[in-house]
Amino acid sequence: MSNQHIASLLHRHRKLDATPPTREQLTHIAALYQKRINFDGTPDLMSGLRGRDVEAKGMLPASDVRAAIVATRLPFPSSLTDALVASVTNAEGLVDYVQFCREIDYRLRPNIHDHIPCQLDEASLEAVLRQAQDQVDYVNLVADLEGSTKTHHFAGSGVV
Rank of each mutant, 00 (worst) to 15 (best):
L74D: 03
V54Q: 15
D137Y: 15
P43S: 03
T81D: 05
I112T: 08
R73T: 00
D144A: 13
L60V: 01
R36G: 08
G147M: 12
L120M: 10
P20S: 01
V70D: 05
Q131E: 14
L49P: 05
A67E: 13
I104C: 05
F39W: 08
S2R: 07
I37V: 05
N140A: 12
G51T: 11
P117D: 11
H11W: 12
F39M: 00
F100V: 01
A31V: 01
L120G: 04
H28V: 00
L141P: 02
S157V: 07
D64F: 06
L32F: 04
N38C: 00
V142H: 09
P20Q: 08
T89V: 03
N90M: 06
D134F: 12
L84S: 06
C101R: 02
V98R: 13
Q25R: 00
T149M: 07
Y33Q: 03
T19G: 02
D53F: 02
D17G: 01
D134A: 08
L49Q: 08
V139M: 04
R12P: 02
G93S: 08
S8N: 12
P77Y: 10
A127W: 04
Q133R: 10
A18C: 07
R23K: 06
L16K: 05
K150Q: 10
R107H: 09
L26E: 12
A143P: 02
I69T: 02
A155V: 05
A127R: 11
V88Y: 05
S47A: 08
H5V: 10
F154W: 15
P110Q: 04
I37M: 12
D17S: 09
Y106I: 00
A68I: 01
P77C: 03
F39H: 09
N111M: 04
A127H: 10
I69M: 07
H11T: 10
A91M: 03
R52E: 15
Q25F: 08
A31I: 01
V160Y: 09
I69L: 07
R130S: 14
D44N: 09
V54D: 15
E122Q: 11
K57F: 00
T22C: 04
A127E: 13
E103M: 07
L16W: 14
Q135M: 15
L141A: 09
H113M: 06
H11L: 09
Q4S: 06
I37A: 09
V85L: 05
V54S: 15
V160K: 12
A155I: 06
L120Q: 13
P61V: 02
R107S: 05
S124R: 06
N140K: 14
V159N: 01
L9I: 13
D64Y: 06
M46E: 11
G93P: 06
D17M: 09
P110R: 08
S157L: 15
E55K: 04
P20R: 12
K35I: 00
H113P: 01
I37K: 12
R50Q: 12
P21R: 04
E103P: 00
V128H: 11
V88T: 09
V139W: 13
A30S: 06
G158E: 07
N38S: 08
V160G: 06
V98N: 13
L108H: 05
A31F: 13
